[in-house]
Design a protein around this nucleic acid. Sequence first.
DNA 1: TGAATAAAAGACCCTTATATCCTTTATTCA
DNA 2: TGAATAAAGGATATAAGGGTCTTTTATTCA
Lengths: 150, 150
Amino acid sequence: MSTTQSESHVLSKSCQYALRAVVYIAANATPSHLTGAQEMADSLEIPKHFLSKILQQLTRNQLVSSTKGPNGGFYLSEENERTTIDRIVEIMDGPGLFKACVLGMPECSAVHPCPLHFQAVDYRDGLYHKLKRLTIQELADVVHKGHVQL
Amino acid sequence: MSTTQSESHVLSKSCQYALRAVVYIAANATPSHLTGAQEMADSLEIPKHFLSKILQQLTRNQLVSSTKGPNGGFYLSEENERTTIDRIVEIMDGPGLFKACVLGMPECSAVHPCPLHFQAVDYRDGLYHKLKRLTIQELADVVHKGHVQL
DNA sequence: TGAATAAAAGACCCTTATATCCTTTATTCA
DNA sequence: TGAATAAAGGATATAAGGGTCTTTTATTCA
C-alpha cells in the first residue's frame, strides 16, 4: 500500500537554518572573534554554501551584520539582538504563514470559516504571539545557560 | 531588497485537497448519487487530474470507497465516516508533522529541547489532539448546517 | 454483446525548494 | 603593494511537490 507522502512542515528548511544560525551567532560571536560561515556550517551541520546564501539574505535585510576579509564574519548589533523571531520567519518564509488558512482557502475567516478554522486558529495565533515577543537575545541566553541544544 | 521566500505551510496542498474532498463526499454523496471526480473538481475548484490521483491514494488506503462505471463515483462507508482527521493527514503528509521538531532537529524533546521546543510543543500537541478526536462526519455535519464553506 | 461511463494506473512535465560551485568585492596584514 | 581571507553575488544542478495527459480496467445499460 505505497502512499507517496509530501512531507510537510511548519517552517521551511531555510528558515530553520536561519533561526539556528542567528541564535548561534548571538551565543558565540564576540567583538574580537566574529563567527564565520565555515565555523557555523561545521558546528550546526548545515551545508556551508546553502548557509552562506541564507546569511546573505539575512544581512541584506539587516537582521545580522557582517564584515569581509580576514577576521571577518558575522555578528549581531545591539539592535539585531532585539530582533524578534517572527521577523526572521517573515523574511525567510514570507508573511503568509501565520495568516493563511490551514486548508488553503482564500476567504477563510471567523465570519466565513473553513471546516477546520476554529480548530486551527488558536494554535496558529498562539504560536505567532509568542514568537512576536521572543527575541534572538532571549534564545541565546537559554543556549548559554546550557538548557538547550542548537 | 528582494528576498526569495520559500512559502512554507502546515499541510501540503495534496492534504488540503484531500480533506476538502473527503468532507465534500461526506456532505454530498448519497447511495443513489455518488460523487464523481469531475463534480468535485468543479465544485471545489481543484485541478481534476490532480484530485483524481489524491482520491486514488485515499481509496487505496480505504479512507474512501468507490465504484467504477456509469453512475460510479466516490462515497463513504459508515466506517469511512468515522475516520478521524489525523488519519487523513497521516496518509497524505506522513506521520512526521505532529512529531517533528520546529527547527528540524533530530534529537529534540523535553529532555534535550531545541530553543523553540517549549514555545511550539503545546500548540502542536493541542492541534493534534483535536484532530485525533474529530471525524469526517462531524465536519460534514457542520457543512450541512451551512455554518462553514468548503 | 457493445457502446458509454468513470475510476485506476502510469508516464510525463513544470515549478519551487534545496544545494553546490565559481567569480567578484572588500578587508587585513606582512 | 600584494597575498591571503572571508563575505557577496550569480549561475547552475538536483530533488520533491504540484499538475497534466493517456491508457487500462471495471461497470452499466441499451
